[in-house]
Amino acid sequence: MIVIILVVGIIGGLFAQHQLAKQKRQSRIVATTYAVVQIADKLKLPLVGVPTTANKMPARYKNVTRVGSPMNPSAEKIASVHPTAVYSVTTLKDQFGKSFKQQHIKPYFLNLDSVAQLQSTVTQMGNKYDRQTEAKQANDTINQAIKRAKNRAKGQTKPRVLVLMGLPGAGYMVCTNQSYVGDLVRLAGGQNVFTSKNQAYMQPNDEAIRNAKPQVILRLEHAMPEMVTSQFNSTFKSQSFWADTPAVKAKRVYDLQEPNFDATANMRAATALKQVSKWLYPGS
Rank of each mutant, 00 (worst) to 15 (best):
V50K: 05
P46A: 12
T33M: 08
K42Q: 15
T52C: 07
Q38K: 13
A40R: 04
T33P: 03
K44L: 11
A59T: 13
R28Y: 08
T33Q: 07
T53K: 10
V30G: 11
V64S: 01
P58K: 03
P51W: 01
G49R: 05
T33G: 07
K44I: 02
R60I: 11
V50C: 02
M57K: 04
T33F: 07
L45R: 07
K44E: 14
P51E: 09
Q38A: 13
A31G: 10
K44M: 07
N63H: 14
A35V: 11
A40M: 09
K42W: 09
P58E: 02
S27V: 13
P46D: 15
P46L: 00
P46Q: 14
L45K: 06
P46K: 15
S27Y: 07
K56D: 10
I39S: 06
A31M: 06
V37P: 08
I39P: 04
A54R: 00
A35F: 00
L45Q: 02
K62Q: 13
V64I: 14
S27Q: 14
L45D: 02
N55G: 11
N63D: 15
A31D: 06
T32Q: 08
Y61R: 01
A35W: 10
K42M: 13
Y34L: 13
Y34K: 11
T52H: 09
P58F: 02
T32H: 06
K56L: 03
L45Y: 03
Y34C: 13
T32F: 11
R60Y: 00
K42A: 15
V36Y: 10
S27K: 10
K56P: 00
N63G: 06
P51V: 05
N63V: 06
T52V: 04
P51T: 08
V64Y: 00
K44Q: 12
Q38V: 02
L45G: 07
L43K: 07
P58L: 00
Y61I: 04
K62M: 08
R60L: 12
Y61M: 08
L45M: 14
R28E: 01
A59G: 10
T33H: 09
N55M: 15
V37Q: 08
P46R: 14
L43N: 04
R60Q: 14
T53H: 12
L43R: 05
V37D: 04
A35D: 14
A31H: 05
A54E: 11
P51G: 02
I39C: 11
L47Y: 10
K44W: 04
T53V: 15
T33Y: 06
M57S: 02
D41V: 09
A40F: 02
N55K: 15
N63P: 08
V64G: 00
K44H: 13
Y34A: 11
A59L: 12
V64P: 03
A54W: 03
Y61N: 00
Y34T: 12
K44V: 10
I39G: 04
N63I: 07
L45V: 03
T52Y: 09
T52Q: 14
S27P: 01
G49A: 07
L47I: 12
A59M: 09
N63E: 15
T52E: 14
V64R: 01
I29N: 07
N63T: 15
I29W: 08
K42C: 13
S27H: 01
M57Y: 10
I29G: 03
G49T: 06
D41K: 06
K56I: 03
A40Y: 01
R60N: 13
K56R: 10
G49I: 02
R28C: 08
V48W: 07
R60S: 13
V36I: 10
